[in-house]
């Protein structure tokens, strides 16, 4: 395992880069996913159609293709940002579709009467969603949402191949290809880096699951 110990600083750099990709994408895909889910259940038909279009597009397109369009397509249209931005953008667009569907399934699990009662009190659509439906949906949403997000954490490895570089995955490639370390130990180190992130997230999710289960 000297491949790991000798290059600890490279691993730490890679870990931090991956972590920042993940955190930005986490915030972005949760916010966007929630908005798309809201438009999918909204009473306005064009919004519902837009939501469906969004989900259909990004859920059924491979992540790498989405990333290609972000990293090469947008600059072609004169939209120049850092590759970090494009990478996070691609991951957010892609993941938002899955977040949306997890949230929507949670919304559908809340009895219709709850929303009817909220609406009959005069709550607006967003109040109804925010005050009554989503808090109750949370309980059923947390487990599938957790799977979606952990999948996103792992998908962040793909972003490294689109100009970002320096993330955990590319650190592995640098150590094996350019510096000549043995493949297996290097990638065991890479795996450990991702496991630190995903296992921590998994533990947090379990705490959260227990919390929302009690809140009733």
């Amino acid at each position: 395992m000297e491949a790991v110990t000798e290059n600890l600083d490279a691993y730490v750099d890679g870990f931090l880069t991956s972590l920042s990709i993940i955190l930005w994408s986490l915030v972005g895909s949760l916010v966007l996913g929630l908005l798309i889910a809201a438009s999918r259940v909204s009473p306005v038909p064009p919004l519902r159609r837009f939501g469906l279009f969004w989900v259909t597009t990004f859920r059924n397109t491979p992540l790498t293709v989405v990333l290609v369009f972000c990293a090469f397509g947008l600059p072609e249209l004169g939209f120049n940002r850092s590759f970090f931005f494009f990478g996070v953008l691609g991951l957010v667009l892609y993941t938002s579709a899955f977040v949306c569907e997890a949230v929507r399934s949670g919304i559908n699990s809340v009895p219709a009467g709850q929303a009817e009662a909220a609406r009959s009190l005069g709550l607006t659509f967003s109040q109804c969603l925010g005050q009554v439906v989503l808090p109750q949906a949370l309980r059923t949403v947390v487990p599938p949402l957790g799977s979606v997000l952990i999948a996103m954490f792992k998908n962040s490895a793909v972003v490294g191949a689109f100009g970002v570089g320096g993330d955990l995955w590319s650190t592995g490639a640098t150590l094996t290809s350019a510096r000549g370390y043995e493949t297996l130990p290097v990638y065991i180190g890479v795996a450990i880096g991702y496991l630190i992130i995903t296992l921590t997230a998994g533990a947090l999710l379990q705490v959260l699951e227990r919390k929302v289960a009690i809140a009733r």
Partner: peptide, 16 residues
């Protein structure tokens, strides 16, 4: 960093 030099060349031509 990319996987392919051709991707670097693309990014050079679109100014990224």
């Amino acid at each position: 960093l990319f996987d392919e030099y051709s991707q670097c060349a693309d990014s050079l031509s679109n100014g990224q």
